[in-house]
Design a protein around this nucleic acid. Structure first.
Lengths: 143, 143
DNA sequence: GTGCTTGCAAAGAGTTTGCAACGCC
DNA sequence: GGCGTTGCAAACTCTTTGCAAGCAC
């Protein structure tokens, strides 16, 4: 799985005639291992090997070629690999601890599709964010 | 309707022992009239009557007391009045014409609730954005 | 009158850009 | 070896903060 992902990543760069450099590989790996990250967290995790400016440039480039995308969770912009790498999913965002949980649910997807159809809307993409309190934090609060 | 909204706004400030000042009224009115706005757009629309810093402070305060909240539209962070003022809804965002369509759907809400329950997650709030092509743009493209 | 709120200005984050050096293909 | 890419540093934009003056209640 990881091998396949790296392989796809490498070929995607080749296809666009972009070079596979250490900064690019490190940014990709940080996201691969660390899930959705804020920009500053991504910068922190690639330091000191990669300069801030290069992280910004790499993120912008990767966004163009749809290797990663950004979304806003809990009012914060976070970056994650696209669905090609992560599969289609949404986020449960805990307002206490800030942790993100990936979820996927077919009934939800189906309901969304029907809603779009009802309005004659050709849905290409969608983002869902649910904020609340995760099980761990709820348990802790009760203790 | 507008009178009732302003009334609720005024009482909500009173209840929290916050003063109804011109800057606060202007920020509220800008959102009431202009729908979801980015921070910089909100600042622009309240200038020169209100200082930038005051807009930031007002937005933060209003968020605390749930007069407004953040959401995602087209990948950008925007600010809009809360459901108390707008009703619970989500957005269909057309990538062609940029128009936002407000929608509400019970089956979708139910599916989301069940998903949260499955994960032991106490959902407080959620934001859904669907991007695609609206009926009008699809019709036009076909013609 | 009292204490919250504001405008101003400056500080602090976060992000972008120019340019010479570097290294992938 | 050529040209895309990087690191560095400075510029820029966005957001926050300290403080004295102002105003809603």
């Amino acid at each position: 799985m990881l091998i396949a992902m790296n392989d796809y990543f490498r070929r995607e760069l080749q296809r666009r005639q972009l070079k596979l450099t250490p900064p690019r590989r490190l940014v990709f790996e940080a996201l691969q291992n660390g899930g959705p990250l804020t920009m500053s967290e991504l910068i922190r995790r690639t330091q000191p090997a990669v300069d801030r400016a290069s992280v910004y440039r790499t993120v912008a480039r990767f966004e163009q070629i749809e290797i990663l995308h950004h979304l806003i969770v809990g009012g914060r912009k976070v970056i994650e690999l696209t669905e090609r790498f992560t599969g289609h999913h949404h986020h449960l965002s805990c307002v206490r601890c800030g942790q993100l949980q990936d979820v996927h649910d077919e009934p939800l997807e189906a309901a969304l599709q029907r809603l779009a159809d009802t309005h004659g809307f050709d849905a290409h993409n969608h983002v869902i964010e649910v904020s609340g309190v995760c099980r761990a934090c709820a348990t802790q609060a009760a203790a």
